[in-house]
Amino acid sequence: MNNIIVRNTVRFIVLVLIQVFVLNNISVNGYINPYLYVLFILLLPFETPGWLLLTSSFVLGFTIDIFAHTPGMHTAASVFMAFCRPGLIRFISGSKGLEPGMAPGIKDMGFRWFFLYSLILILLHHLLFFFLEIFRFNEFAQTLYRALLSTFSTFLLVLLVEYLFIRRKDKA
């Protein structure tokens, strides 16, 4: 139990540092903003109680907001993503059933499951974030385009990290 708490806390700190000091400073072109930090919410254990899921997402979003000078936007998007998570897990797991000790990742749940799970949650997060950033609807198509491109880049990064992580685990 303690081990899980420590691992998630470390993951929280590492993801925030990567997001703030690396990803927020890289500009690929004007449109691509990967927000890898959402990986923290994706990888929280299934057994995480609801209140902890929401509050930790709130703290995560708030930390990112402070560094990125975007008050409330990452916070709102992250909390929304956390809110959607349990329902989505129930929906896409279906009859598969979750056994105790399983973690949300490719290793335990399979590629197809993780693909759907992370893509949908990242998309929800990014759509809310980009529309809150602009806070008006008259640049709808452009905002949608930005959200989709960023979703794609975040998703690729998430898959990349997930695969690196699996390999390291297998070797150990």
């Binding site: 209140w51 929401l54 008050p71 909390v79 956390a82």
Partner: peptide, 24 residues
Amino acid sequence: LKKQSFFFLFIFLELVAIILLINH
């Protein structure tokens, strides 16, 4: 009740975020 508390906490945290956003 437990399920509802999840929903209420969500609404509360989301409101805090929106207030932050609008006040800024």
